[in-house]
């Protein structure tokens, strides 16, 4: 009898817990769904082919676009990747592979602190370090700010991926007469590169949406900017400026920009995941 009752209670508790986790999942998905729904609804009506090829127009002129901001965001990301990714990967390798213990701990800790630093502070830091001495806003400054945000993410991903590479691969290579460098280069990094690449893409999709660190580093630009030492437009700053302006036409453009940005990020994100799955699936 009591056994029967016990089983019923256990079953009930099981069901309740399962339902609770289900509800929690829904609550998590809800904001995401609402954001997507809203951005798509508002953005689709404001977007047009011209949006992707035209420069911004004053609020009283119809038909402006964000072509320069889209390209500007890509330029900023390029600078960030060129600076932040090699540095992050190299430091991640050092930390995971053969760092002196003290330095390793220090670097990991610093990366975590940097990762938690508000990005506006990062922007401020670059403002003092780059913008003030150069006496102008620039793509370089904006890209560097994004690089600093990218750096700890790439570093920690590299570090973590390398930790997951089994020791047995290293031993196998050593036992075949490989030097430590060869072991690292053709076994460890080769086994880890898919994971590292995936982490890099996720990090890029994260910084692509940054606004605060760009406000006073790359600033903004109504025209094309192909120079490292000139201010440059970016989707996020452009959206910010348009959204707080009192013009309906600009509000609509801000929605279109938001839809473009979120699509870009989702594409990078899904691309990274699909690629990771493909690579790891192929090897497993």
């Amino acid at each position: 009898m009591t056994g029967d009752l016990n089983r019923k209670i256990r079953k009930l508790r099981n069901n309740v817990m399962l339902s609770l986790t289900g509800v929690a999942t829904l609550l998590v998905l809800l904001p995401l769904a609402l954001i997507l729904f809203y951005v798509v609804k508002e953005g689709v009506s404001a977007i047009s082919p011209g949006f992707f090829v035209h420069l911004p127009e004053p609020p009283d002129v119809p038909g402006g676009g964000m072509a320069n901001a889209i390209v500007g965001t890509l330029e900023l990301l390029l600078v960030a990747v060129i600076v932040g990714v090699p540095l992050g990967i190299a430091a991640g390798i050092y930390v995971a592979e053969h760092g002196a213990e003290f330095l390793t701990k220090l670097v990991r800790f610093s990366a975590d602190v940097l990762n938690g630093t508000p990005t506006i502070v990062t922007g401020l830091f670059i403002y003092g370090l780059v913008v003030l001495p150069m006496r102008k806003f620039s793509t370089l400054a904006g890209g560097l700010a994004l690089a600093i945000i990218l750096l700890p993410v790439v570093l920690r991903t590299t570090d973590e991926v390398l930790q997951t590479i089994p020791r047995s691969y290293r031993e196998a290579a050593l036992a075949l007469g490989a030097t430590r460098f060869r072991v690292l280069w053709d076994v460890v990094l080769r086994a880890a590169r898919a994971g590292i690449m995936g982490g890099v893409l996720l990090a890029i999709s994260r910084v692509a949406g940054e606004t605060a660190p760009l406000l006073f580093t790359s600033f903004n630009n109504s025209y094309w900017s192909m120079w490292l030492d000139r201010p440059v437009a970016s989707l996020t700053v452009q959206i910010f400026n348009y959204a707080i302006a009192p013009y309906d036409r600009w509000h609509a453009q801000a929605w279109a920009g938001a839809l473009t940005l979120i699509t870009m990020i989702i594409v990078i994100n899904l691309g990274a995941r699909a690629w990771l799955r493909w690579r790891t699936g192929r090897l497993a």
Binding site: P166, S168, Y169, E171, A172, A173, L174, A175, L176, G177, V187, A191
Partner: peptide
């Protein structure tokens, strides 16, 4: 290590 090869307990192909 080239002259003395080693096979491990758990097979460990790359």
């Amino acid at each position: 290590r080239r002259r003395v090869g080693m096979i491990f307990q758990r097979s460990n192909p790359f």
